[in-house]
Amino acid sequence: MTEPKIFAHAGESAWTATPDGNRRRVLLHTDELMMVEFGFDKGGVGALHSHPHVQASYVAEGRFEVTIDGRTEILAAGGSFIVPSNLVHGVKALEAGRLVDSFTPRRADFLPSLD
């Protein structure tokens, strides 16, 4: 069994285009937890969606309009939010920016297929 990667360095992971036109890179993960960086251009939208994973997000750069379960707030760099399991949520980048998201359990759909 392979030991999990426990350290990541800036720029080490490659960006992957997301279906909604943004980009993400998986930084680290175990079966129980995953950390992912998302990059948005100004006006970029993370469409409303839900998933069974609990998500905690940190605004690393920029300003975002964040909607969770019908409630919307503007968050700037240094702000954060949490999305309980299965709540509908999404974001809009009011300026170019980055979010660092943690998911529990990990988002297997963000990993390359092992097929």
Rank of each mutant, 00 (worst) to 15 (best):
H49D: 04
E12H: 03
I6M: 13
R71H: 11
S113I: 04
F40P: 09
N86D: 15
R24T: 05
A93P: 10
E73R: 09
R63Q: 09
E37V: 05
T18Q: 04
I74D: 13
Q55R: 12
R107K: 14
S50W: 10
A8S: 13
A47Q: 12
K42G: 15
S50A: 14
A8K: 11
F38H: 00
A17G: 08
A14N: 11
L28D: 07
V91C: 14
F7S: 11
I6L: 14
P105S: 00
D20E: 09
S113P: 00
L87I: 02
G97E: 04
V83Q: 05
D109H: 12
D69T: 01
V100Q: 01
A93F: 03
A77L: 00
V66A: 09
T67R: 06
P52I: 12
V59M: 08
R63T: 05
G21V: 04
D31V: 10
M34H: 06
F64K: 03
G78R: 04
V26Y: 01
G39L: 02
S80V: 00
I82L: 13
G46W: 05
L87V: 10
V100S: 06
K5N: 09
I74S: 13
M1Y: 10
E12V: 06
P52N: 11
G21C: 03
N22Y: 01
F110Y: 15
H51T: 13
S13I: 07
V36A: 07
I6A: 14
